[in-house]
């Protein structure tokens, strides 16, 4: 059985309820780094208690200054499950790809004349185990020339993905009930890019599972290269 995930949603009860109705297995809520405080954690805990979904919480960093981006990533690394950076310009994309603490690079192709990733960044993504997120919300809310360019940029990125093998996921970026799409619809919409049905399915299932595995590794790791494999029973130690 395939499990589906929507890995970029707003912290909204209605959205989570709708995802449950569509039989998603899990989701990740992203809070804005500029407005992140302790109340966000409380909101996450409250929503997590009232749902059967596997919920994760992450932080979305939209920064145009590379130094500030590094600072934000360092600050939030141990506080949240996932760190997602919004792709902006070549400089920001390069810094984000170079940071091993970053988990997801969100739409690196935005506001550009190209897909935002080249062969150098592609190998950095593989090296640092960073996933690229395709925003279906953006695809739905653009029209004509902008949508055509967006599809072209994603197709360009998919070519690099085929060659270098970095991980790609798709998400709805749902902010309200009207933005949520069922797994079937997400697969259909993903097929507007040059991907076959099988890979479109992987974008919201298998590829997201890889990100979830990384979260577990991240939680278990003590320092770089050292990880708690299992808890040792206290009695055996005594």
């Amino acid at each position: 059985m395939t499990f589906f995930y929507d890995f970029n949603i707003a912290p909204n009860e209605e959205v989570i309820q709708c995802l449950e109705d569509h039989k998603f297995k899990g989701a990740c809520m992203f809070f804005d780094a500029d407005n992140y405080d302790n109340s966000c954690k409380d909101i996450f805990n409250y929503l997590n208690e009232n749902t059967s979904l596997e919920l994760y919480h992450g932080i979305l960093i939209s920064e145009s200054n590379p130094e500030l981006l590094r600072k934000h990533v360092q600050r939030y690394y141990n506080k949240v499950d996932l760190i997602m950076v919004n792709g902006l310009n070549d400089k920001i994309n390069r810094v984000a790809c170079n940071l091993a603490h970053v988990d997801i690079l969100n739409r690196p192709y935005s506001n550009k004349r190209h897909c935002g990733i080249n062969h150098v960044l592609a190998s950095m993504l593989v090296e640092n185990n960073i996933t690229v997120n395709i925003d279906i919300y953006e695809l739905l809310h653009t029209r004509q020339m902008r949508r055509a360019k967006l599809i072209n940029h994603v197709n360009e990125m998919m070519k690099l993905k085929d060659k270098y093998g970095f991980n790609v996921i798709a998400s709805s970026s749902a902010k309200s009930f009207y933005d949520v799409r069922s797994p079937k619809n997400l697969i259909l919409l993903s097929q507007l890019f040059k991907v076959d049905e099988e890979y479109a399915r992987k974008l919201i299932s298998d590829n997201v599972s890889k990100v979830i595995n990384d979260i577990t590794i991240h939680k278990e790791s003590v320092i770089d290269g050292v990880r708690i494999v299992h808890d040792v029973d206290k009695r055996t130690c005594e």
Partner: peptide, 23 residues
């Protein structure tokens, strides 16, 4: 059918009115 279903999934709004279609 695929084209029709994709079109239905991509409907987001009619003027200011938000909507979602579930096939």
């Amino acid at each position: 059918e695929k084209e029709t279903l994709t079109m239905l999934a991509s409907l987001t709004n009619i003027k200011e009115n938000k909507l979602v279609v579930q096939s």
